[in-house]
Amino acid sequence: MSAVLSRKTFRPRLATLMTMLVVVFLLLPTIIVIPVSFGSEKYLQFPPKDWSLVWYRAFFADREWMEATRLSVIVAGLATLLATLLALPLTLVFARGKLPASGAIKALVLAPMILPHIVTAVGLYITFARWGLTGTVFGFVVAMAVLALPFLFLTLSAAVSKLDPALDMAAASLGASRFATFRLVTFPLLLPAILAGMAFAFITALDEAVVSNFLSSSISKTLMKKMFEDIDFDVSPIIAAVSTLIILATFVLVGVAQLVRTIQTRRMGKV
């Protein structure tokens, strides 16, 4: 008996050791940039000799960095909004409607997530060059919305499939119109999932680098394009400061999204 037990614990112990090493590997890059951003040397030093905020000041004082940040936040915000407005009706149709060729439409919606981003990026680059959309807010927004659409569609579909159809039926039997049912029953129940999906879509759009890289022009650059160029030419610790700020913003957003979800689960539990 004891032999069986000791043999049983042998394997997980090996797996546990491997897991700890892999976790260090996974977390290392995210963690390493934070101390680097608080150094004061021009070239990279780890750990930094003395601590300072020079690179943060340099970031906020630099017009080009500020413009890239502004553009990226605007683009990510508008793209998230557009993708949500497109994904929500589509999700409802897939759950409760009749759609011819629904398999083909679903494949079309999910395709931007599965096909290599480089191919989408180059296709958009060539097309937008013809249409004069390169480097425009409109161009960035529609491109990012297309990339965000599959993620929102899947998040919202999962949420819709968890809704109790009896609630709709109850509203209908009480005389509510389809629209009233949606506005007063379906939408409020979906709201937390919509908000969480939007938070993730915003992060994805903000962090997207491939399409961003190809659609940027010399005068209109997203934050990721600016970072890409700066990493390629001269690896300044400003990039560490920018990275730290992006990590911080991402975690605040993810935290809020999780919080919204938790609150919703609790509320559902009470009902």
């Binding site: 970072m227 990493i231 991402t250």
Partner: peptide, 21 residues
């Protein structure tokens, strides 16, 4: 956590880790 860290941020981090100094 790595999934939520932008790919560019991680590329930069690998430069910090792997470069000459």
């Amino acid at each position: 956590i790595p999934l939520w860290t932008a790919v560019l941020v991680r590329a930069y981090a690998w430069i910090v880790i792997l470069q000459r100094q």
